[in-house]
Design a protein around this nucleic acid. Structure first.
Length: 1114
RNA sequence: GGGAGCUUAGCUCAGUUGGCUAGAGCGCACGAUUCACAUUCGUGAGGUCAUAGGUUCAAGCCCUAUAGUUCCCACCA
């Protein structure tokens, strides 16, 4: 016992009393550090423990003095790997993962708890397996989320963001976050997460900022970042733009109005020749103030004669200000966005605006009236139409959702919705309103405050994602056109769509050089394994549809965009990292800082290589290791015009990159072994990490991705604050313990499947912990406080390796484990198999089955059978020691007399200890706290369970294992019979004939089946049998020569059950006969399957014969 | 408008590439119990695997259609 407090075994496991202490123990020991705990070796060098574990030679040879050549279990053979010579250290296999950084100043929700638990199961499992494990935690500045919280706090004290400069705000939020960030980190510890705290990365750490700038610079130089003038999604409340993916769309009831636009000259002309007006339909009448065309479909015969005519836009003569055309689009004093800079050079007419009727394929002739008003500044489609037809762009709504001066005096500064009412009223008054229909349409909302999203024309930083997505798709073993090439009946449709996206990507971007990034050729399913596999296709589809990504946000809390604009020339932008300066001078020209910050996903999308300090762009990033948030201008400023091209290079080898700063010890953990996160992060995060990983390092950021499904509330509804149905993982932990939470939330779930949180699952987990606890309590009590070398002998130690002060490994062979009873051989077989199976399940991320396996093994096998069996063995040994009860004597194997009996008890204790340790190791990844607590409380264990490795597989005897299986079958039959005899209160007596197995294990069977006595045939009974008379109930199903001493009257009651059994067995026989009678089956099914069927049939027929004999029917 | 998933015991769900008698937890019924554990032990009931076709020696699993349901994506004004 390494941990020396007075942790005792109370009757019930109380997680609350020990969890915090246990975590502190782990953390202090350094076991969670990447690569494990450091220890000094002989030569004074730091060495890692656990090297070469799991690869040691399978030990064959003696088992308890008997040859075990035949006793090597089928499972154990698998493990016969050759070991490296002692002292020779091979590099351990690496297993690594990074945590999706939770909001630094928030609380963990149940999804975090789930995700971290899954990763922790894997991390602990692979540590036990002897791998070099790194689990790197993170904390997110959560740009927008935190900003929303902070802005609300400002609101409460009557301030707004406009009362401060950006730098002031940044400093304030920084303090705010620091003050609150401990919560989340405490909660991760409460969950028992075994992450390397020394590697914790905060998303605003200098190395993050430096890496992000480096990427931005490369993207810029490669022509993949541009200043885009186009429609972006704005939340009027938060006054920032969003990426497409951040918008929540919802079907809503709304109105569509039909509005008549009078045709210029229409009144004066002949009605048949020139129409008087054209009617358009719209759901947003207020945008009419920014209309610059009316469009119809060129094929629409109804309107063919309208094309080329001009219409007047109603209401546009109502007090339009003289300066609307020059307005910069900023509806407020906001200094956050340069929003609509250079918005338009439309000409003010002074009167009603006249706009053309144009023809464009975009218009759907079947929708509405077939004529559409075109507002390029406030609708993405209209914007594209505007580009094609060189239309003016008139912004009439500002980023605060209020009407701009350009909308005219009557409307300026009104909320868009109020303006809508006024416009509709005006149209009605003046007779332009021709109809109003209720319709259901999709409306975009802010995912945070639910405000209606305004599409506004503005200038933002965009990333040209097409080349990045192409490369990512390739790494997935697909391509962006795959969906189209699949060629289903919708191909034409889809193809068009994809083509249009591609066109947009090019036409909207600046015409800078696009470096075509080439990846290695990939075949098959690609370089990343997906769990569930369907997510790969989903991601490919997303990449195909992906449009250029707006990465600028108009909030101060985030990584400042390192770009400056020439105050004299709006088109001149340079890259510079001196973001703490508002103005800088370069080449005698004055540049002003861009006030925007990066989208959080722009930085977190680079998470795997940031956190591991992996070399990027072919070299180590020197600045990542310097101090200070903003590292200064390392690179020469890159003007958009004279960008010195930096072409993508694939990552260099470590050796080549090692000049300058030393390679971080974490770098070997990139790419990560696995990324595990919720399905909701597929698009915003996983998609980006793959794109950036390939771009920056030339490698995929992780080899596998596991998506867990969303955890819903107990009624299967999505958890949300507004619904008030959020379940806090911390509350669950407080009530049931962290292990129970983990078990409960992981059990009964499969990859990617959304599912309700189940309290009963948590309860079941808690019960399991308590079971394990009590098992341990029994074993500890049995083994005793004086367990030590004199009792067990160094040999009987369980193969766990010990490290002495010098760091040398002393391996004790498990082959010394002295198995004797059938139960012992059987349990070793079961444990070996469970260990093997667990590794397989976890390698396939089959967490739920892993829990079932561990429950079934520890509870269903070890506790229910093995421990009960060993109790019987102990009893027998005690009785032998007392010199009595030779009836259940161990037949000389354990010898006779006091000394032999004591030796036998010691032997059993050693095995109990071994089995318990095995169970603890098996369970530890799933339930770390209770297993470690037990480990610490046991009198004979050393050090930390969290730092244990698996030892060799113990060897067992197949015959003995089989014997126990037969004993189990017999015991089960006895229990069944007794449970099915109504009102039978007394304990039964089992009589056996010439049945060696039963004779040898009489006490065992008596104990397991809770019998009064187990005895051989009396002479009288032999006579009865010879005479064909009944001596009791024959246990026919197990086929043994054994009877329960039950009178005939009771047997008759039981006979009914026997008849049922006969029917069941007959049915099975019939089915098997039918199958084997089928020639096609015999001919085509695999041979072993057919053989199995035959064997099965023979067995069933034997059972049937016995049953019939018992019933006297045969 | 498009896409994906789901439908298996009373409830919540597992069920890898088709293979024998479809599993777990909770719940339920009956029985037990001072000797590790009532957060326990033993036994049991409960399923035409949504429906209809098809492929196959063999289908919960593969294919087609239908119904119900959930989620995601999308610029029909």
């Amino acid at each position: 016992m390494w941990y020396n407090n007075d942790m005792r075994f109370e009757k019930v496991y109380e997680p609350r009393e020990t969890e915090a202490e246990i975590y502190a123990l782990w953390e202090a020991s350094g076991v969670f550090k990447a690569g494990g705990r450091q220890r000094k070796s002989d030569d004074g060098q730091e060495v890692l423990t656990g090297e070469n574990d799991g690869e040691r030679e399978m030990l064959a040879g003696e088992n308890g003095g008997r040859t075990v050549a035949v006793a090597v279990g089928e499972k154990t053979e698998v493990k016969g790997k050759k070991t490296a010579a002692k002292g020779e250290r091979k590099p351990r296999e690496i297993w690594s993962t990074v945590m999706p950084p939770p909001n630094a100043n928030g609380n963990l929700h149940i999804g975090h708890g789930f995700e971290m638990s899954l990763k922790d199961v894997l991390a602990r499992h692979y540590r036990l397996q002897g791998r070099d494990v790194a689990y790197i935690p993170g904390a997110d500045h959560a740009g927008f989320e935190t900003w929303v919280v902070y802005e609300r706090a400002l609101e409460r004290i009557g301030k707004t963001r406009f009362d401060f400069t950006r730098d002031e705000l940044y400093a304030q939020v920084w303090d705010f976050v620091q003050k609150n960030r401990s919560n989340m980190e405490i909660q991760i510890r409460q969950l028992g997460i075994s992450c390397d705290w020394s590697a914790l990365t905060f998303t605003l750490d200098p190395k993050v900022v430096a890496t992000v700038y480096e990427t931005f610079r490369h993207l810029w130089a490669d022509g993949l970042v541009y200043r885009g003038h186009k429609i972006a999604n704005f939340c009027p409340k938060h006054q920032t733009s969003f990426a497409d993916i951040e918008i929540t769309h919802r079907d809503e009831q709304g109105w569509m109005w039909d509005i008549a636009y009078p045709i210029v000259g229409g009144e004066a002309s002949d009605k048949d020749e020139i129409p008087r007006e054209i009617i358009v339909s719209t759901t947003r009448p207020e945008t009419l103030l920014g209309d610059t065309a009316v469009a119809v479909n060129p094929k629409d015969e109804r309107y063919s004669k309208y094309i080329g005519l001009e219409v007047e836009v109603p209401l546009t003569d109502e007090g339009a200000t003289q300066d609307w055309a020059a307005a910069d689009g900023k509806g407020t004093a906001s200094n956050w966005a340069d929003g609509m800079d250079g918005a338009t050079d439309a000409v003010l007419t002074g009167a009603r605006r006249r706009i053309p009727i144009i023809a464009d394929d975009y218009v759907d002739e079947t929708f509405g009236t077939g004529a559409v008003k075109i507002t390029p500044a406030h609708d993405p489609n209209d914007f594209e139409v505007g580009l094609r037809h060189h239309l003016d762009e008139i912004s009439v709504i500002g980023i605060n959702g209020k009407m701009l001066p350009a909308a005219g005096e009557r409307y300026a500064n009104l909320d868009a919705l109020d303006a809508r009412e006024r416009v509709v009223a005006g149209l009605e008054e003046q007779g332009y309103l021709r109809g109003k229909h209720e319709i259901t349409h999709t409306v975009g909302h802010c995912y945070k405050c639910d405000s209606v999203i305004q599409p506004l024309l503005s200038n933002q930083w965009f990333i040209k994602v097409r080349p990045l997505a192409e490369r990512a798709a390739k790494a997935l073993g697909g391509s962006l056109d795959e969906k189209v090439a699949d060629g289903d009946e919708k191909a034409a449709d889809g193809g068009e769509k994809v083509a249009r996206v591609a066109e947009n990507g090019v036409s909207e971007g600046e015409d800078g050089p696009v470096t075509h990034v080439e990846g290695p050729s990939i075949s098959g399913k690609g370089e990343i394994g997906f769990y569930p596999a369907s997510k790969r296709n989903e991601l490919l589809a997303y990449y195909s549809e992906l449009r250029d990504w707006n990465i600028s946000r108009q909030i101060p809390w985030g990584i400042p965009i390192p770009a400056f604009q020439n105050v004299a020339d709006a088109s001149d932008w340079i890259f510079d990292e001196r973001v703490e300066e508002q103005f800088i001078e370069v080449d005698g020209k004055k540049y002003k800082r861009d006030e925007d910050t990066f989208d959080t996903w722009f930085s977190s999308g680079q998470w795997p290589y940031i956190t591991t300090d992996a070399p990027i762009y072919g070299s180590l990033l020197a600045s990542r290791h310097s101090s200070g948030t903003n590292a200064g201008a390392l690179a020469p400023p890159l003007g958009a015009a004279d960008a010195s091209p930096i072409h993508f290079r694939s990552a260099l080898g470590v050796g080549e990159a090692s000049e300058g700063p030393a390679l971080s010890p974490l770098a070997k953990y990139y790419p990560n072994s696995v990324m595990e996160c919720g399905t909701d992060l597929l698009r915003p995060w996983v998609a980006k990490m793959i794109m950036f990983g390939l771009y920056a390092t030339g490698e995929v950021p992780f080899k596998e991705v596991y998506f867990h499904g969303m955890v819903q509330d107990e009624h299967g509804k999505k958890m949300s604050k507004s619904k008030g149905n959020v379940i806090s993982p911390m509350e669950v932990i407080a009530e049931y313990g962290a292990d129970a939470f983990r078990l409960g939330v992981i059990a009964n779930r499969s990859a990617g499947q959304a599912q309700a949180f189940s309290r009963s699952g948590v309860i079941s987990g808690r019960n399991f912990c308590n079971k394990l606890w009590n098992m341990s309590r029994f074993v500890q009590a049995t083994v005793g406080e004086d367990y030590g070398e004199d009792l067990v002998g160094a040999d009987a130690h369980n193969g766990r390796d010990d490290v002495d002060e010098a760091g040398e490994r002393e391996e004790t062979p498990v082959s010394e484990l002295n198995l004797r009873t059938p139960a012992e051989h059987w349990v070793v077989a079961e444990l070996n198999s469970a260990r093997e199976k667990l590794a397989e399940l976890l390698a396939g991320y089959r967490f739920s089955e892993a829990i079932e396996l561990v429950y079934a093994t520890v509870w269903g096998k070890v506790a229910d059978w093995f421990i009960e069996a060993e109790k019987a063995s102990l009893r027998a040994a005690e009785q032998a020691g007392d010199g009595g009860a030779d009836e259940v004597d161990a037949e000389g194997r354990a010898g006779t007399g006091k000394n032999a009996a004591e030796a036998e008890q010691r032997r059993i204790r050693a095995i109990l200890a071994y089995v318990l340790e095995f169970c603890l190791k098996l369970t530890h990844p799933l339930a770390p706290f209770v297993t470690e607590t037990i480990w610490q409380a046991l009198s004979w264990t050393d050090d930390l369970l969290a730092d244990e490795k698996w030892g060799d597989y113990a060897i067992y005897d197949i015959k003995q294992r089989e014997n126990f299986a037969q004993i189990m079958q017999l015991v089960e039959e006895i229990r069944f019979v007794e449970a099915n005899i109504p009102e039978r209160k007394q304990k039964d007596v089992l009589i056996f004939g010439s049945d060696e197995l039963v004779a040898e294990n009489a006490e065992l069977i008596r104990g397991l089946a809770k019998l009064e006595k187990v005895r051989g045939l009396a002479e009288k009974e032999q006579g009865k049998l010879a005479a064909g008379e009944s001596i009791g109930l024959r246990l026919a199903n197990s086929g043994r020569e054994a009877w329960l001493e039950i009178d005939e009257k009771t047997i008759e009651k039981y006979a009914r059950n026997l008849h049922e059994r006969v029917a069941a067995v007959k049915g099975e026989i019939e089915q098997l006969e039918r199958r084997l009678g089928n020639e096609a089956y015999v001919a085509r099914a695999p041979e072993e399957l057919v053989a199995e069927s035959r064997a099965n049939l023979a067995e069933k027929q034997a059972v049937l014969a016995r049953l019939l004999t018992e019933l006297g029917e045969n």
